[in-house]
């Protein structure tokens, strides 16, 4: 059990190190996905399958797809096909693939009915998460919405294109 945790943690740390050190955004993103998957596996091993599923769906799924889209849209141009072929050389995807394969092997091992995780006293399911979020932590949920509003308004203001010229905003 502990060995599984340490392997997943090592994968997460390694992948994150690679994210920070890659010069190319797409390669960094590939490693970031692996890192998030490793964290999801750690959640699962700790007895939080719902959090693990959310981590995969929300982070590795939705947010990463957005990242990749943005990176791809920023690189539009005549050379983009050529450039993409270059990004996908085996040397580039072999690293993330190996790390992901380690995670996959671990996942299969856990799901294939290996002895139940002994270090975990309880398994926190979706029902328990929902009850906690909208019971004692309901104010945190409400405040988190304000936090997102702050991010949204700030991003809108800072990233708005300057097409209107200096007279913009004159009421």
């Amino acid at each position: 059990m502990n060995a599984l945790f340490y392997i997943a943690a090592a994968v997460a740390v390694l992948a994150t190190l690679m994210v920070v050190t890659r010069a190319h955004a797409v390669h960094a993103l590939l490693y970031l996905i692996v890192s998030l998957l490793a964290v999801a596996l750690i959640f699962y091993l700790l007895g939080a399958p719902f959090a693990a599923a959310l981590e995969v769906i929300v982070y590795a799924g939705a947010i990463m797809v957005l990242f990749v889209f943005v990176v791809m849209m920023l690189n539009l141009g005549a050379h983009s096909v050529q450039a993409q072929r270059q990004w996908l050389r085996p040397a580039m995807w072999i690293g993330p693939s190996i790390l992901a394969a380690v995670l996959l092997a671990e996942l299969i091992y856990v799901l294939a009915g290996s002895p139940a995780p002994a270090a975990v006293p309880v398994t926190v399911g979706p029902r328990a998460v929902g009850l906690a979020l909208f019971g004692p932590y309901v104010l945190a949920v409400e405040l988190a919405s304000i936090m997102l509003l702050a991010g949204l308004v700030g991003a809108y203001h800072l990233a708005r294109p300057e097409t209107c010229g200096p007279t913009e905003g004159a009421a």
């Binding site: 308004v153 203001h157 913009e168 905003g169």
Partner: peptide, 10 residues
């Protein structure tokens, strides 16, 4: 010249 109103919201 820019948008001044978001300042108060933030």
């Amino acid at each position: 010249g820019g948008h001044r109103e978001e300042f108060y919201l933030l």
